[in-house]
Design a protein around this nucleic acid. Structure first.
Lengths: 319, 319
DNA sequence: CATCTTATGCTCAAGGAGAGTATAAATGGT
DNA sequence: ACCATTTATACTCTCCTTGAGCATAAGATG
């Protein structure tokens, strides 16, 4: 089947040949800590060349992750395709297209003898964890530095606009924290040169914000993945991919909170779970617990066949 | 800056060289009809090779669309990257990665002397337009054929599962229409071999569903774009990219309805517009109208700077 | 038994969303 | 002039959702 005329009349394939890479954001949640699979001492996301022996990108990613971790991948979703030369540095390297994916697993599913390292994702984004209230680094370090950056704009109008952008994306000045703006926040810090990856790293005076950096644009890809996942859990039952087969409602709640980076109202969370019929009792009770023992639940896989849209809404507080 | 170790130790670039193509879903709304830019007599989306002279994919797309249509592009968003060999047919062609984009413009913005053709998007997806109630072809043709397909499953359990999937994605048996499931519906029809693109086209007996086909996987890409746009208008003020500078609230409503493929409650729509402060009066009134003249409004660009999340919610009916 | 901790059931109030009624302002026909 | 028709615009009403809090139950520990 012929493609479009445009393509037929275009330059030969060798003219714009590129290499295709896969980059994976593999997420697990262990003990209420969201983790991502990393390599190179936690400074890079797992990535590799795309093998065209596979039928599709998804198949390639699954096979590749399985080879790396020794376990099949549950939920997989494409994130974004990057081809920016600007950030990757050297223009003389062969052009590369990076196709990034988000994958959900459990840490314990990784086979023995594999080089998988799991790093807490808040190591890379300390300002994103609002479970214990607004992080200290946000108010004490990031906000002031953003203010300085805003004030450095050429005109008063631009200064105000810059600061307004900062205030919105970081929820400053009582605007309320929006946990989904992960990428926007990273991009803003990048633009303000508060992130090592933004270059100017040789500038020792550069005011750098806390948070572990990553190779190339991997931290940006990670931010994309976190943002996507935080949005997704609200309208698709994907949290369960990160849970063991049986769990208590509190464990489930803790996982949701870990991903969202903020706390939810316990009773309302249970109400949502019940009325949405996402889970069912196993009949067993949790063992080895403090306090009153909780019922064990399992995910009702049937809901996937029953309804098109089901989510784990976040019963947030208005305050 | 070095990339991950995985990449360093991988095969040389020539080993997995591919060509990168851009495919664009360019949307406009004219007189309450959503349209897409097409080439080749409406059988393909505009596409072409990615020129690495540009800094990023977005820049490349913008420049390319501008060259094609003679007008700058407003809103641009990446859709999906395809590399499936399975559907493109010949395995001997050079491997290609197609990066698709969604772009919003207005039909009248296309310059003279360009070969842009605008086709109504419901020509390709007749079953997606529910503005005048459930389309006839859905009840009369699609539903029965899906039922036949479901019954062709090997076991009774599989038959039931198939039919349940169909009923959910197409809103059959009083389940309610979900306008966002555009891609799922297309994929289901594809799987059921009711779509010419699914191959078996030589089979004259094949029960084919109404709707204009497209080259390669372009109709799938279009479905992805429509689905994305239908979801997006609910939480981002992107409709305004498709509107003229000044418009009446009814015109705005008609555009939203055109995209969503379903009607909304007029009074509630106005209430939403007002309380969200997305628009402001220009002071002028619409001319050349039937009935009472309406106030003209314009988009309040300031909201983009004021709030992070603003949407054109659909005040749908519960029935 | 007092206390701590988690589990679980229930109520309340404010806001949002779906739906309907009523009125206003234009046009065109008789 | 009057009326039907069409669109614009203002309000009201009710049900459901959602944020929030109170109260009680059931285990462990000292």
């Amino acid at each position: 089947m012929a493609r479009s005329p445009q393509k037929k009349t275009s330059a030969p394939a060798s003219g714009n040949a590129v290499t295709a890479d896969l980059v994976a954001v593999l997420v697990a949640v262990t003990d209420g800590t969201p983790k991502i699979m990393t390599i190179a001492g936690g400074s890079a996301l797992p990535s590799g060349p795309f093998e065209f022996t596979h039928r599709s990108l998804q198949t390639a990613l699954r096979a590749w992750v399985e080879a790396q971790t020794g376990h099949p991948l549950g939920y997989v979703e494409q994130l974004y395709t990057f081809a920016d030369r600007g950030r990757s540095g050297d223009a003389r390297t062969p052009h590369s297209v990076s196709i990034s994916y988000l994958g959900l697993t459990r840490e314990d599913q990784v086979g023995e003898g594999f080089e998988a390292h799991w790093s807490g994702w808040y190591d890379y984004f300390p300002w994103e964890d609002h479970r214990a209230g607004t992080p200290v680094c946000l108010a004490k370090m990031i906000a002031p530095k953003l203010k300085t950056w805003a004030k450095a704009a050429p005109s008063p109008t631009l200064q105000r606009e810059r600061w307004q952008r900062c205030a919105i994306t970081f929820g400053l000045e009582d605007r309320g924290w929006n946990e989904e703006l992960v990428l926007q926040r990273y991009e803003l810090l990048y633009e303000a040169l508060l992130i090592p990856e933004a270059g100017r790293a040789h500038d020792r005076e550069a005011p750098i914000v806390p948070g572990k950096p990553m190779t190339a644009d991997h931290r940006r890809i990670l931010a994309t993945g976190i943002a996507r996942l935080r949005a997704k859990i609200k309208y698709r039952p994907v949290v369960f991919e990160l849970m063991p087969a049986e769990f208590t409602l509190l464990q489930l709640q803790r996982s949701v909170e870990a991903l969202a980076g903020r706390l939810v109202h316990k009773q309302n969370f249970r109400r949502l779970m019940e009325q949405q019929e996402l889970v069912e009792e196993t009949g067993a009770m949790a063992a080895d617990t403090v306090g009153r023992p909780a019922k064990l639940f399992r995910f009702r896989h049937a809901v996937l066949a029953e309804r098109a849209v089901v989510g784990t809404k976040l019963p947030l507080s208005r305050t």
